[in-house]
Computed example of a mutant assay.
Amino acid sequence: MNQTQCMIFEILDEEEEEADLESHDLHGITLTDFDTPHTMKATIGSAADGLLLLYPNADDPETSVYICNPVTREYISLCRPKEYNCWSCFQFCASKVSEQYKVVYLGRTLESDSFQVYTLGTGLWRPIETGAASGFKFNSNERAVCNGNLHWIVDDFDQLSIRICGFDAETECFSIFSAPQGFPMDGDVESNVKLTNFRDCLCVCYT
């Protein structure tokens, strides 16, 4: 079987390397490396509490999705939902309450977005209602995990504005909230907006 090697490294802590940060001289320490179970020319990945979600950016619906433990180098494979298409994507999260790991599938078509959830250990995909997120268009490239919950930037076409959608990993419910006060809404904002997690806080960065 063809394989691709992955490497995980850690950027040294800010307080331990203050002098290097001031000189913009960051250092990385290799934690582990491992082989993925297949060749992935374009690999999409996300992490949740020490586990990695990996899947190739491929049109083949038979290509599996993998959950990998980079420390033990063990992995399991998940079949893709039957509705999978090349515009779809997967996200990974872990509930802080039940500690269950969940893979969230975002199915995209020209008409609408739909969601399914795979809880590790159950062996099946379950459709879930979008609820409050119904009618919004998800930007699958701009997402972040904060406190175990998923977040995306979404378009509100009715109000011609950008919102943020949160997915609660425990209740599997969606919520919509506005961007921070003072957020510029003119021009092509979406292409310059990034979501990230900074010290357990959801951050919106824009230029």
Rank of each mutant, 00 (worst) to 15 (best):
R143W: 11
N149V: 03
N147T: 07
T207I: 13
C165E: 11
T196R: 07
S114V: 08
V189N: 11
E99Y: 11
G123V: 08
K194D: 08
R143A: 09
C68M: 10
T43M: 12
T4R: 03
A169V: 00
L150G: 07
T171G: 02
L106G: 13
P37W: 04
L52I: 03
S175D: 12
P81N: 03
T119K: 02
T171F: 07
S77R: 00
A42R: 15
S191K: 14
G131A: 06
I164R: 08
E142R: 14
F92E: 00
D25S: 11
T130A: 11
K82S: 10
Q181T: 04
K82N: 11
T43R: 15
D113C: 14
T196Q: 08
L110E: 13
G187M: 09
D59H: 07
V154T: 08
N57I: 04
L12R: 15
R80K: 06
T4C: 11
F90K: 08
D59M: 06
L52A: 06
I44Y: 11
E22K: 05
E18Q: 05
F183Q: 00
C79F: 12
L150Y: 07
V145N: 10
D35A: 07
C93S: 00
V117A: 06
N141A: 15
L106R: 13
F136M: 06
V193T: 13
L52Q: 01
L21Q: 03
H38I: 14
C79L: 12
E15S: 07
G45C: 13
V204S: 09
A133K: 02
N69I: 06
F174R: 08
K102C: 06
I162L: 11
D158W: 03
I176E: 04
Y84R: 01
D158P: 04
N192V: 14
T72Q: 02
H24M: 03
W87G: 10
R163Q: 15
